[in-house]
């Protein structure tokens, strides 16, 4: 029962590569995180003009928020590739990304709350960006719920890709309607990103943390995709001849 077409052999070829890369990615992510945290905690002033020590939550908060958004974009990208080329591996990538993306969005909501409490005095205050992240979490949960509700992998891949496409079109509209509920004063959308003015040390530490989260995501997604490949290809001969399956 050999599968010889290229697009059907992709999972078999990708499996060992993912296995080799994953541990290195996670290890590298750990190293980068340590460097980032050291830089962020030891090389930066304790108290900023408007923020006290709690501002150091920024490293994990902003990094996880970005990851939450970036991974959703990756998910949509792989879903699109899946629809166009009908290759099973790209659907598997989309399926593998969703849980990690949801985890980062959830993490960014909680770290936002931990930061909001000391600086704004409330755990949650429906600030447009926080609300958008909450809705992004709902989109992730909807995506994963649809995928787990459908048993046949073929239909679940295609159905969740259609949902991802709908998400792609709707996310800007949702983001805009949340950020600018009252069209009169719509300044909220044009708030300048606060990246430039902050102390370069903080900014560099944050970029290192973002890089560390990126590499961590790659590693974890590789691990999850191996599980998905094993689960979906358990009938094929190449899986049954794998040494770890004897």
């Amino acid at each position: 029962m050999r599968i010889n077409w290229f697009k059907y052999a992709a999972p078999a070829n990708f499996y060992p590569i993912a296995g080799a890369l994953a541990p290195w990615f996670i290890a590298l992510a750990g190293v980068l995180a340590i460097i980032g945290l050291y830089w962020g905690f030891f090389q930066t002033p304790d108290i900023l003009t408007d923020q006290k020590q709690y501002y150091r939550i920024i490293f994990v908060h902003v990094a996880s928020a970005w990851m939450g958004m970036w991974l959703y974009a990756m998910l949509v990208l792989w879903a699109l590739i899946g629809i166009i080329f009908n290759t099973r591996l790209s659907y598997m990538f989309a399926a593998a990304i969703a849980p990690t993306g949801a985890m980062f969005t959830f993490l960014s909501l909680w770290t936002g709350a931990f930061w909001g409490e000391p600086s704004w005095g409330t755990w949650w205050d429906w600030d447009p960006r926080m609300t958008s992240m909450l809705i992004l979490l709902f989109l992730y949960i909807g995506y994963m719920a649809l995928q787990s509700a459908i048993d046949d992998p073929r239909r679940s891949d295609k159905a969740s890709s259609v949902l991802a496409m709908v998400g792609l079109v709707m996310v800007p509209v949702i983001y805009w309607s949340v950020n600018c509920p009252n069209p009169a004063e719509c300044a909220a959308l044009h708030q300048s990103s606060s990246m430039e003015q902050i102390d370069p040390n903080i900014r560099n530490a944050m970029f290192i943390m973002v890089a560390s989260f990126w590499i961590y995501s790659f590693g974890v997604i590789m691990l999850r995709i191996r599980n998905i490949i094993l689960e979906r290809e358990k009938q094929t001969r190449w899986v049954q001849e794998l040494k770890e399956c004897q």
Binding site: D46, Y54, R56, I57, L107, W110, T111
Partner: peptide
């Protein structure tokens, strides 16, 4: 500067954030 970072009295919030992050990523 390289001084030891002081947590002020926000140790709980910083610890909770990083603890949660570490927990998830392990």
């Amino acid at each position: 500067m390289g001084s030891l970072p002081s947590m002020g009295d926000y140790g709980f919030y910083i610890g909770a954030s990083y603890g949660l992050a570490l927990l998830f990523m392990l």
